[in-house]
Amino acid sequence: MKQRAPAFQFYPRQFAGDDQVMGMDLEAVGAHILLMCAAASSPDRCRIDADEYAIRMRLRNPSDEAWERIKKQLLGGAWKLTADGKWWVQDGLQRTFQKQKEFSEQQSQRANARWGNNNARDVPNSCRNNAGEMPEGVPEGCSSSSSSSSSSKNKTMSSKADAFDAALEEIFHYYLITLKKIPACIASLTSENGKPWRVSKSVADWRRNRSWRTQSD
């Protein structure tokens, strides 16, 4: 399920210099910020229920006199009561939310156009974790950062890696036969799991094997 963003954009200079805010007293400014937080947290991101009791509770239940003063300032421009009288709407939040939504849709369309895929949506939270370790035997060139490379490029890299694999394996056999005096048939066993980048591991395994050590030394 898509989750709401936990934050909203706040433009401090625009807020401090806003005509409506400039005309508010300190209590009204505080009330305005508290209600903006409530509206940004709401499902619609820009409005709150017009139930005055609920609003007053959000504002720490000011006295009737204070509430009337605050309400007058808030509804003087910063907040608007909808035609049906059910909601207080904050224009600035509404505009910002609309901009973000349009930008998100635009980026989604660009992604779809570029990748030919109609499912460019938000990444689910379950996918927001680090990439796992690459499996053993994968050459360095095939790291996850090359996700944009084409399949032909991957094939080329793979064939190069295979060639490197074969060459290094051959050299390792030569090393075992020449320096460790291991018969060729046993030397070939050491590379049964063999990938070139695992040669060091093969050597370590080989060292641990006492019978081979006896043969070589």
Binding site: F172, T178, L179, V199, V203, S216
Partner: peptide, 24 residues
Amino acid sequence: IDRLAASKFHNGHNRDGKKWLDWE
């Protein structure tokens, strides 16, 4: 590899009489 195989020093002709023939 051939040169290591041919090196007397690495094949035991050294002060400690040890062979130094590892891949590393």
